[in-house]
Write a protein that binds this DNA or RNA. Sequence first.
DNA 1: ATGAAAGCGCTAACAT
DNA 2: ATGTTAGCGCTTTCAT
Lengths: 323, 323
Amino acid sequence: MAALAGVSTGTASKALNGRGALRPETRQRVQQAAEQLGFVANAAARSLQTGRTYTVGMITTDSIGRFSIPLLIGAEDALGAGQMSVFLCDARDDPIREQYYLRTLLSRKVDGIIVTGRRTQARAPIGVGLPVPVVYAFISSADPRDCSVVPDEIDGARRAVQHLLAVGRRRIAHVTGPEHHHSATVRARATAETLAAEGLQPAAPTLYGEWSEAWGRQAAGILLSTGADVDAVFCGSDQIARGLVEGMQAAGRSVPADVAVVGFDNWDVMVDGCRPALTSIDMDLEGIGRSAAELLLATINGNPVHGRQTRPCRLVPRASTAV
Amino acid sequence: MAALAGVSTGTASKALNGRGALRPETRQRVQQAAEQLGFVANAAARSLQTGRTYTVGMITTDSIGRFSIPLLIGAEDALGAGQMSVFLCDARDDPIREQYYLRTLLSRKVDGIIVTGRRTQARAPIGVGLPVPVVYAFISSADPRDCSVVPDEIDGARRAVQHLLAVGRRRIAHVTGPEHHHSATVRARATAETLAAEGLQPAAPTLYGEWSEAWGRQAAGILLSTGADVDAVFCGSDQIARGLVEGMQAAGRSVPADVAVVGFDNWDVMVDGCRPALTSIDMDLEGIGRSAAELLLATINGNPVHGRQTRPCRLVPRASTAV
DNA sequence: ATGAAAGCGCTAACAT
DNA sequence: ATGTTAGCGCTTTCAT
């Protein structure tokens, strides 16, 4: 290729990378030759020389899914601008696999690693004294020195409750996932505290169950059969909320007239599929992914950021809480 | 590291890669030294030497989502066994982005490329005369010489109809997505042909609409208001099917007693969320991904496979068609 | 059974 | 402004 352009390889390198002091016409001649031959620089050789790969690894500890994808897209967004690519590794909640992928990423000399998962709960650091920076996204690291970007679930729950209060509801119940699940307890506590701050009691004790529509339907039955006086329910997930709406309707209650309902996740297929469309809390997963990638870039570029960063949630009002 | 083990770099390389003729004790000593130092071979240097990267690129033309993920997991499965990793690139349906990623992958000297997308329709080849093998998964290439792995949607539709016949239904309607959508028309035609082969007419003309629950609900209304005599509906997607079930129930029809319903995709959150649980057609996306990766590996290893490979679908019976 | 040395394709420092 | 050259870290002949 350098031969075709009639220059040395060194000159060609400078021409293609916009470095050095070259005559514009030389630069152009090289670019033309590269074009003509479909030449693309060998990234491996470049990495070997420069020590940078312009690649970051992303390890999702839980199986790739609804949460990982927006995180990935957000990260790609932030990294794509810097011409960097993402290596996605699905560890499937298996520590062996996780360490295997970690080794793979290290052998590939990625410039950094983003660790994500399905739960927001803090997890053991993926490694100590690693030769590359690591940022945790959505999940956080148990080591407070590590950099983590997580949704502010307390903020999310607060927004949900305050929205229900704003549309005039006072007898608010909370239905959520398993009690041993971090998100469930965090959101439940924030719900209770927000109500308490307004001088209100929950309309019923928090109902813990599964993250499923079936549980939402069941929970509707429980609320009605215990005769709880409820005019709104904040649910820990959109699936629970959708099930609950169906359960309420099956029992002759109208949503939102009799009972207003707020979900959590703002998962399109759930909020749109629900009749009426579901008001929900959006954790802005893309934003979290973007933010994590930006912090990783900062660290790579020598401006390390430490600690747990939280990002606010957003309420998306829809018909299920319309006044 | 070689120094720690007291050998030359050449010997160390042989020890770690299980090549050459070494004394077992030497081999062990090197492995120990590597362990101790947390040494991992630099993949870039290795690639430079061997010309192989043990990496394949995966370009999804549509935004990463419900279809791409199982395909990716299947591909990872097949490739992981061979110690290969996957570079996931989301071209977001943008040809510019797609070509950009193609260049990136080529510069990274991936051993092969898998191209996927959200639609099964044939697409223009991603490039011609590429220096690496390419396999299309789920989508197919318009060039019949290219290797593509696609679901046999005709088979899927046939299984759906035959299942409905097997549970005693005769007045079968079909509700599906947009008429300009390849999958919609292919499945509709196969539905009609399967019925015809049994000497039956569709209970109503095919209803084309959107891939949404809302359309399913609406379609139920249309079927009922036109007075069509229907005892079963095969829907082009699980979302449509779920909406249709709700619409039928809202109009006082019982599923499956009055109307049996079959969906398409076997998407867990839809089939489980639906009451009654939804019988559906599974395209085995993971299998398609795995298959594509295996064919890619074969091609990389010098046994190229050409042409469009179809893979059968699977019917998963649930309560919505229970007898 | 092991070591020495060449070279993969590129970049960067230095020479011209 | 351009060419020359020495490595980056590994694998792989070829000697020993």
